[in-house]
Amino acid sequence: MKIEKDQSQEDLTAKRKRGRPKCFNEQEALQKAMLLFWEYGYEATSMSDLTQALNLSAPSIYSTFGDKAQLFQHCLEYYLQHEACPIEPIFQTAKTAKIAIELYLYETVKRLVQDHKPTGCMLVVAAMNCSEENQSLQQDLLLKRQQVKEKIYQHLQQGKATGDLSIHANVQEMTDFYSTVIQGLTMQARDGVSKQQLNQVVDYAMQTWHVLIKEN
C-alpha cells in the first residue's frame, strides 16, 4: 500500500511540474506576433500589444517564447521561413545569373507588397531607429541582410567562373548595386509605392545589366 501511495504522489508531482497543457497554437501565435513586429517595429510593439493580438497573458507568452527579445527572434525565424523571398531555390534553378537576379527582384516585390500584410522587408524595417539598448538586435538584422548579400555575391562569382558572366564583370559592384536596389524597393514599399511602380524599378535595374557586366 505504501508503494502505491508513493507512486501516486510521484505521478501528481510530475503532473504539477509539467503544468497545464497549452491551449493555443504556437505557430498561429508566432504569425500574429510577427505581423506586429513587421508593421510597427520592435520598440514600438509593446507587451500589451502582443497580449491583445495573441489573446494570451504575459506569463503564457513568457513561458512559451521567452521575453520580448526572444519572442522577436522566434518571429524573425518564422518570417524567414514563411514570408521572406526564397533566394536559395531561385538561385539553384535559374539557368543564368541574370535570370536568377531578375527572378529574385520580381519575387521580392511580390513579398514587399501583399494584401493584408505589412509592406517592406522585416529584416530592414523591424529594428529601424532602435535605441542604444537594442543595438544588438539591429546588428543581428544587419548580419542577416549581409548573409543575403553574400549569397548574391557568391552566385554572381559562380556565374563568372562558369563563363556565364564576362571575365570583365566586377562582381562586387554588381552585388552592391542590386543589394541597394533591394533595400530601396523595401523603403519605397513602406512609403506606399505600388507593386506596378516597383516592378518598373526592377525593369530599369535589369536594363543596366549589360553595363554592369562590361559588355561592349
Score class of each variant (00 low, 15 high):
residue 1 M to G: 15
residue 3 I to M: 15
residue 3 I to F: 07
residue 7 Q to V: 05
residue 9 Q to M: 07
residue 13 T to A: 09
residue 14 A to Y: 12
residue 14 A to P: 00
residue 14 A to M: 11
residue 15 K to V: 06
residue 17 K to C: 07
residue 19 G to M: 01
residue 20 R to Y: 11
residue 22 K to D: 02
residue 23 C to T: 08
residue 24 F to W: 08
residue 27 Q to T: 13
residue 27 Q to D: 05
residue 29 A to D: 00
residue 30 L to Q: 09
residue 32 K to S: 08
residue 34 M to T: 09
residue 34 M to K: 01
residue 39 E to C: 01
residue 39 E to S: 14
residue 40 Y to Q: 03
residue 40 Y to G: 03
residue 41 G to K: 00
residue 42 Y to R: 04
residue 43 E to Y: 02
residue 43 E to W: 02
residue 46 S to M: 12
residue 48 S to V: 01
residue 52 Q to M: 06
residue 54 L to R: 00
residue 54 L to I: 03
residue 55 N to E: 02
residue 56 L to K: 00
residue 56 L to T: 00
residue 57 S to Y: 00
residue 57 S to W: 00
residue 58 A to R: 13
residue 64 T to R: 02
residue 64 T to C: 15
residue 64 T to S: 12
residue 67 D to H: 05
residue 67 D to V: 13
residue 67 D to A: 04
residue 67 D to N: 14
residue 68 K to C: 04
residue 70 Q to Y: 04
residue 71 L to T: 01
residue 72 F to M: 08
residue 73 Q to W: 12
residue 73 Q to I: 12
residue 76 L to A: 10
residue 79 Y to K: 04
residue 81 Q to E: 08
residue 92 Q to F: 14
residue 96 T to V: 05
residue 98 K to A: 03
residue 102 E to L: 03
residue 102 E to D: 13
residue 104 Y to H: 14
residue 107 E to K: 11
residue 112 L to G: 14
residue 115 D to A: 15
residue 115 D to Y: 06
residue 115 D to E: 15
residue 116 H to K: 10
residue 119 T to I: 05
residue 120 G to L: 07
residue 121 C to G: 01
residue 122 M to F: 11
residue 125 V to G: 13
residue 125 V to E: 03
residue 126 A to P: 15
residue 127 A to Q: 11
residue 128 M to Q: 15
residue 128 M to F: 04
residue 129 N to A: 07
residue 131 S to W: 01
residue 131 S to H: 06
residue 131 S to G: 14
residue 133 E to I: 12
residue 135 Q to D: 10
residue 135 Q to T: 07
residue 136 S to D: 13
residue 137 L to M: 12
residue 137 L to D: 12
residue 138 Q to W: 08
residue 138 Q to G: 04
residue 140 D to G: 06
residue 141 L to E: 00
residue 142 L to S: 02
residue 143 L to V: 06
residue 147 Q to F: 02
residue 148 V to G: 06
residue 149 K to T: 03
residue 149 K to A: 09
residue 151 K to E: 15
residue 152 I to S: 05
residue 154 Q to C: 15
residue 156 L to R: 04
residue 156 L to E: 01
residue 156 L to C: 12
residue 157 Q to W: 14
residue 159 G to N: 13
residue 163 G to S: 05
residue 163 G to K: 01
residue 165 L to I: 14
residue 166 S to L: 14
residue 169 A to R: 02
residue 170 N to G: 10
residue 172 Q to L: 04
residue 174 M to G: 09
residue 174 M to L: 12
residue 175 T to M: 08
residue 177 F to L: 11
residue 178 Y to L: 02
residue 178 Y to T: 04
residue 178 Y to E: 10
residue 180 T to R: 00
residue 180 T to N: 11
residue 181 V to F: 10
residue 181 V to E: 04
residue 183 Q to W: 05
residue 188 Q to V: 10
residue 189 A to V: 05
residue 189 A to H: 05
residue 190 R to E: 04
residue 192 G to A: 07
residue 192 G to S: 05
residue 193 V to N: 06
residue 196 Q to R: 11
residue 199 N to R: 11
residue 200 Q to H: 14
residue 204 Y to G: 06
residue 204 Y to A: 11
residue 206 M to N: 07
residue 208 T to L: 15
residue 209 W to S: 05
residue 209 W to E: 07
residue 213 I to W: 09
residue 215 E to S: 09
residue 215 E to T: 11
residue 216 N to A: 10
residue 216 N to Y: 10
